[in-house]
Design a protein around this nucleic acid. Structure first.
Lengths: 225, 225
DNA sequence: CCAAAAGTGTTCCGTCTACACCCATGG
DNA sequence: CCATGGGTGTAGACGGAACACTTTTGG
């Protein structure tokens, strides 16, 4: 049984994960030293080859799970990259996926075991192959989407202060936001709920903790920052 | 020589072209009856398998050229589609590309030879495999981009009237636009130039013909409709 | 002379932006 | 008591939306 398309050639297909986190007021990217040839030792995104029994999305989820132990993470396809010689080893077409995770959910020992690190985007080194291009495209997409989709919450704990939320937006957009205008705006969004809890860590006075109500959002999925 | 990644499996990768045109005041899609098994006879996008000696972009251009004889056409990647059983024949991962062409540039005899037709989006039939999903995604992207990039001009002849241009926007956005506001807006965009020519076909009075000045745009590539 | 499309300004309203001071508390 | 971050309102500018009539000319 040769199948329908036997006359055509097949190619390796991989998935690369562009994992963003937010820490210390900065947007961070998860990268590690490549542990295989070619390019062993170079900074690189974490990726894996697509298996015959999994879809692209499944491969992306599996790869992220292998790395972080996290499941049900927001992931979005960034695009397919298919230059002939993009990989110095053999021809590999890769599909990049962007993931947003809360750095606190990622166990730091597990992170060290995989030899990956959180690196600030403004000091991002040269990465393996065309990975820098993929990251730039992911950031562009992220910036565009962040004002029309409630994405920031994926980078924060379930409960967060408005100042934290504002810092996430500032980190993604790369510009400062007026505090009063920002809070005014947030108050009109009813699926961002103020809770009874108070955060006492970040300030002496204490700051109200807010929560993103997924259900309320899914009922009325409109968002505009 | 087995290469670096021999332990992993390869997969068929194809490119599908989502070709948009504008005619009779409507946005049209170029589709044809599939001429191979499986799915022979079903409505389908036009596509082809990626060869070992070409990049994804090259494959997309080549496929579009095979179909239309046109080169240097605006094309944009829509995304990769990789569900395991998306193709009823064998596993194929496909990368969809969206193209915008001027229907007048596509020779109608050549079109008939390939057995493809321009079909209005509002009467789009069920297409082969997951092609309908790809088309919907392409339209979503197109709608989003059309107000921040000068795309409409790809669907029009070099010289066009403002009414034609407005109709293109209306077709893409799916809503009517106020004529006075639209023209006011266009006048502030300096790379949309009024020419000395007059179109006498569409009205008795005649309408001024305009031109999109690519060079002027490339000097100052900002656009907002 | 009339049908059919081209062309043209003004007003209103809502939204975004700029901007500075008081509050509560831990140390 | 003071340093630190939390929290609040207003006025002016700007941009988008609504809206109707005159012009030209081929048939």
């Amino acid at each position: 049984m040769t199948g329908y398309y036997g006359e055509h050639s097949k190619v390796f297909v991989s998935v690369d994960c562009i994992v963003f986190g937010f820490d210390q007021g900065k947007l961070k990217l998860l990268i590690g030293r490549r542990q295989m040839d070619p390019g062993r030792g170079e900074w690189s995104l974490y990726g894996g080859f697509v298996r015959q029994d999994e879809s692209l999305e499944e491969c992306a989820s599996r790869t992220l799970y292998n790395l972080t132990g996290l499941q049900d993470i927001y992931m979005k396809q960034v695009g397919a990259f298919g230059a002939i010689d993009r990989d110095p080893g053999e021809r590999v077409i890769t599909v990049a996926y962007c993931a947003l995770i809360n750095v606190n959910d990622y166990d730091d020992n597990l992170r060290r075991e995989h030899g990956v690190e959180w690196v600030s985007l403004d000091i991002l080194p040269k990465l393996y192959s065309d990975h820098n291009i993929m990251v730039r495209k992911a950031i562009t997409l992220l910036r565009r989407r962040v004002s029309t989709e409630p994405l920031s919450f994926n980078l924060l704990p379930e409960l967060f202060t408005l100042t934290q939320l504002q810092h996430v937006y500032e980190a993604i957009l790369g510009e400062e936001i007026d505090k009063r205008n920002f809070r005014k705006r947030i108050k009109t969004i009813d699926f961002i709920e103020r809770t009874e809890y108070i955060d006492k860590l970040s300030s002496k006075r204490g700051a109200a903790l807010y929560r993103f109500n997924k259900n309320a959002y899914s009922l009325e999925p409109t968002f505009k920052l």
